[in-house]
């Protein structure tokens, strides 16, 4: 897509491009007027579109280009077709990380959304006391950078001195190593739940608040119980929000990077250099300086995310959003 292509306007198109839901008055002059002011509107989106092209489309394009070449010490850069892709597909390192983050998301996202929905509902209905204060507290981790959260949790769960390790041994679980091979997975789930539950809860709360009170009152007059109102009335009405959150969190899980990288310093035996796809890509590109191979991996990784985004977009469009 070129910028000029975006801005060029064809005369006489305005009637077809009326604003949604607002019928145009008949008459050519009005149509022209609408058309003219609409063309001027293009200038508003130009800055974003240029930045988007330079810092998203160009890098993606250049990655695809890089992924099709190989750099050798002798002979320079040569076209290699899909060689890097074949190498990436065959490398177990890449896929093991993918499978790991998929399992990670499949466990972590339902737990987190269930907690978030429970609290959002309770705050929405006003069943919990001091709902406003709790909402603020739950949201605080969103303001904590993942690096700090990871450092913090690795202190708390440190195998020798960590206070949580100490608690565990008081509770009868001596020698618990939260950062060991067996527990590193649940530990990371715990950290991510700590980081993101509040954010998800606030979004669900906002969505629940948008449900008209009349709907609830009507259900109550029909004799619906609290559980019924929550599960049969409220839940379906905020389903779009939940769907979006599932996709957002799934993409977050796919790109899991900071937490395992920081924890790796404390638990090198539990987290390998290819523990997640992004770790693999990072270590291949920056650590190994294998740009071409990493570019192929980055393209595949990006494609997976784009496909996921498209699925989410289509499902949202089908529900009538983004009309």
């Amino acid at each position: 897509m070129s910028v000029t292509g975006t801005l060029r306007t064809v005369r006489g198109r305005a009637l077809g491009a009326t604003d949604a839901g607002r019928p145009l008055e008949p008459g050519r002059s009005h149509a022209n007027w609408v058309h003219q002011r609409d063309r001027r509107g293009a200038w508003f989106v130009v800055p974003f579109v240029i930045a988007f092209i330079l810092f998203t489309l160009v890098p993606v394009g250049y990655s695809i280009y890089t992924s099709l070449y190989n750099t050798r010490l002798i002979g320079g850069t040569v076209f290699s077709g899909f060689q890097n892709y074949t190498a990436t597909f065959q490398a177990g390192d890449f896929w093991s990380g993918f499978i790991r983050v998929i399992i990670f998301g499949a466990i972590q996202i339902p737990i987190m959304l269930a907690i978030a929905f429970f609290f959002a509902t309770m705050f929405d209905l006003g069943i919990a006391k001091w709902g406003g204060a709790f909402r603020t507290i739950f949201f605080i981790p969103f303001a904590v950078p993942a690096v700090v959260a990871s450092v913090m949790w690795s202190f708390l769960l440190e195998p020798q001195f960590g206070p949580f390790t100490h608690f565990a041994s008081v509770l009868g679980f001596q020698g618990t190593n939260f950062l060991g091979t067996n527990l590193i997975f649940p530990t990371l789930i715990l950290i991510v739940i700590w980081e993101w539950t509040g954010y998800n809860m606030v979004i669900l709360f906002t969505a629940l608040k948008a449900v008209p009170r009349e709907v609830i009152e009507a259900a109550v007059l029909d004799g619906a119980s609290l559980a019924k109102v929550v599960l049969r009335v409220k839940l379906p009405l905020v389903r779009p929000a939940i769907v979006v959150l599932v996709f957002l969190n799934a993409i977050g899980a796919l790109q899991l990077f900071t937490e395992p990288l920081i924890l790796q310093a404390y638990a090198p035996q539990s987290i390998s250099n290819n523990w997640t796809p992004t770790l693999y890509l990072y270590n291949t590109a920056i650590g190994g300086q294998q740009y071409n191979l990493a570019a192929a991996g980055a393209v595949i990784f990006g494609l997976v995310i784009v496909v996921l985004s498209l699925v989410s977009l289509i499902s949202r469009r089908r529900r009538g959003e983004f009309a």
């Binding site: 975006t6 060029r8 198109r13 604003d19 609409d38």
Partner: peptide, 9 residues
């Protein structure tokens, strides 16, 4: 605003 390319953008 609706202009040529707005949908694509």
């Amino acid at each position: 605003f609706k202009f040529r390319g707005s949908k694509l953008a």
